[in-house]
Amino acid sequence: MEVRTIKVFTTVDNINLHTQVVDMSMTYGQQFGPTYLDGADVTKIKPHNSHEGKTFYVLPNDDTLRVEAFEYYHTTDPSFLGRYMSALNHTKKWKYPQVNGLTSIKWADNNCYLATALLTLQQIELKFNPPALQDAYYRARAGEAANFCALILAYCNKTVGELGDVRETMSYLFQHANLDSCKRVLNVVCKTCGQQQTTLKGVEAVMYMGTLSYEQFKKGVQIPCTCGKQATKYLVQQESPFVMMSAPPAQYELKHGTFTCASEYTGNYQCGHYKHITSKETLYCIDGALLTKSSEYKGPITDVFYKENSYTTTIK
């Protein structure tokens, strides 16, 4: 009895394709271990004539594949690729409408935090270190965002349907971005203890939790000093293409032309909904596939993004 075979390709990165001759009487799992086709788990399936010449994702289970996976995804987590594939199996079914010149995501599976993050990423200057993220990001900007969303979920250790947080998501993504040249110098002034300067680099240099107003941050924000008295913390120097200011959701007025974009969060910790506000020729609110415009805006804002380049204080 002759062994019926077909020729397929296996890959971990969709760049390096490895030619395989597979036995049609055995499952993919018996031949390769966990195997995925377009995100779908085909591990328990036997090869079919229609699979001839198709590319299958496999887990990096030998040295060659491990090197290829690390170079593309910059992670050695053995569960990463499987999590990416199972997320992709959902995100490829989502709709990605162009809204006001940006790629958004039609609401499904509690994905409003991903839509808000995706919209924000198209408006701030950011370059990702893992080629996987950078490639998928370019495709997302062009309207094909399924891979990018699935990668975000995998890097953030999230599953489809789980509630997510924009600030946490951005923080994970910033860790995989090139923020080497970003720098922030802060000064804390206390009447009792004097003053202390701190220099922050990388992710810490672009994120701040405690106030939404970048102007206020430049002037000074009140913080408790270690001595128990009130101290003032203010920005001395900022070198970065953008800054992200966050605070627990509270009524906040966004003035046209003073910011790049913002995240609105309605609801409580267990259950809520994100919308995205962007400042173009007027203010726009993007909620999944829905767009509304207004000249002014007041609502429960939790993150505001500002364009920056270089700032030095005039406070002496």
Rank of each mutant, 00 (worst) to 15 (best):
Y208D: 04
N147P: 11
Q175C: 03
T232L: 11
A87P: 14
C285V: 14
D77M: 08
S79L: 11
T159W: 10
F128Q: 04
L121H: 01
K255S: 04
G210W: 01
G33Q: 10
I277P: 05
S295L: 14
T278E: 07
Q270T: 15
T314A: 12
T120M: 09
P241W: 02
C261W: 01
F148Y: 01
S310N: 15
D41F: 05
K191D: 13
D287E: 04
C261A: 03
F70T: 09
D23L: 11
L179G: 00
Y57A: 09
T10C: 10
K95R: 05
Y208S: 04
M85H: 00
C261N: 01
Y234Q: 07
G272Y: 06
H176F: 12
G33I: 08
A40K: 13
V21Q: 13
K298N: 13
V42N: 07
T302S: 14
L254W: 08
N129D: 08
S263L: 08
S294Q: 13
L121A: 05
K93Y: 13
N178M: 08
R141F: 08
V221F: 12
I45Q: 15
H256Q: 11
E2N: 13
Y284I: 13
K183P: 05
K233Q: 14
Q30S: 13
L133A: 00
T198H: 10
V8T: 07
Y137A: 05
Y28N: 09
L212D: 07
V21R: 12
C261G: 08
L290E: 14
Y84W: 00
M170D: 02
G39T: 12
A87S: 10
T258I: 08
A117V: 12
L151T: 04
P241S: 07
F242Y: 01
L179N: 01
G53K: 12
T192N: 11
A150W: 01
H48D: 14
P60L: 09
T314W: 11
P241A: 09
S213C: 07
P300E: 14
Q251W: 11
Y274M: 02
E215D: 13
H276Y: 06
C156P: 00
A115C: 14
T313A: 15
K44T: 13
I124E: 01
Q196S: 11
Y172V: 11
C112A: 11
N268H: 04
D38C: 11
V185N: 03
P60H: 03
V304N: 07
Y297Q: 03
C149F: 03
Q134T: 10
H51T: 02
C112T: 05
S171Q: 06
T76A: 14
G143D: 03
H276V: 06
V304M: 07
T116G: 01
G82V: 14
Y72Q: 10
D109R: 03
D180F: 04
Q216H: 10
N187M: 14
H74C: 02
A108I: 03
T211G: 04
K158T: 07
S310D: 13
N16I: 08
F9T: 10
P300R: 10
T76R: 12
T76K: 10
G161E: 08
P130D: 02
E68A: 07
K93E: 12
E144Q: 14
Q230L: 14
L114E: 04
R184T: 04
S295C: 11
Y311R: 14
T260C: 08
Q222C: 03
E71A: 09
Y265W: 06
I124Y: 00
Y265S: 09
G82F: 12
S295H: 11
Y252N: 02
Y138K: 15
H256D: 11
C261P: 00
P249G: 00
D13L: 01
D41K: 03
V243R: 01
F70S: 08
Q123N: 03
P224H: 10
L133T: 02
G143H: 00
F259K: 01
K183R: 13
T116W: 00
D287Y: 01
G39M: 08
S213E: 02
F148A: 06
A146L: 02
L126D: 04
S263I: 11
H176Q: 09
Y73F: 12
K92S: 08
A150Q: 04
M245Y: 10
E296W: 09
T35Q: 02
F32E: 10
G161L: 10
K275S: 02
L173I: 11
C285I: 15
S86T: 12
G272F: 04
Q195T: 15
Q222P: 14
V166Y: 10
A132P: 03
Q30R: 14
K44V: 13
Q270W: 15
I124C: 00
C190T: 05
C227G: 00
P131V: 04
M207C: 09
T314P: 05
Y155V: 00
Q270P: 13
C190S: 01
Q222H: 02
A115P: 02
T278I: 08
R184P: 02
H176C: 02
T211Q: 06
T169W: 03
S246L: 05
K280I: 08
L153R: 08
N129L: 03
T75I: 04
Y57F: 13
H176M: 10
Q230P: 12
D109H: 11
I105D: 01
L88G: 05
V99K: 14
S213I: 02
D165V: 04
K158C: 05
L88Y: 13
S181W: 14
G202K: 04
H273W: 01
I152M: 10
Q20P: 04
K44G: 10
L235R: 01
I301Y: 05
Y73V: 06
T211W: 03
Q230D: 07
V22P: 09
M207A: 07
K95Q: 15
L88H: 06
V185F: 01
K127P: 09
T313F: 14
A262S: 05
M207Y: 09
G272N: 00
C190K: 05
K218L: 05
T11L: 04
K316S: 15
S240T: 01
L119C: 14
L290D: 14
A146P: 02
E68P: 03
I45Y: 14
S246F: 00
K92C: 06
M170F: 03
E239V: 12
L118M: 08
K7F: 09
V22L: 11
T10N: 11
Q222I: 10
A136V: 03
Y113T: 00
G101I: 01
D13Y: 10
N61H: 12
Y234D: 11
S181M: 12
S294G: 07
V243W: 00
E144W: 05
R4C: 13
V203P: 10
I315M: 15
F242E: 06
V8K: 07
K191Q: 10
G39S: 14
V22M: 11
L235P: 00
F148R: 05
P60N: 15
Y208E: 07
L102D: 04
A40F: 10
T75G: 02
I286L: 09
G194C: 00
I286E: 01
N268D: 13
C193D: 00
T266N: 11
G228T: 09
P224A: 12
D62G: 07
G257T: 08
E144D: 13
Q122E: 01
D109Q: 10
E204I: 07
D77F: 04
Y28W: 13
T292Y: 09
Y113D: 07
D62P: 06
A69L: 11
T75A: 09
R167V: 01
L235M: 04
L200R: 08
Q134V: 08
C149G: 07
M209R: 15
Y234P: 02
E204N: 08
T198R: 11
E296K: 09
G101C: 08
M26W: 09
N16R: 13
T278H: 07
K219N: 11
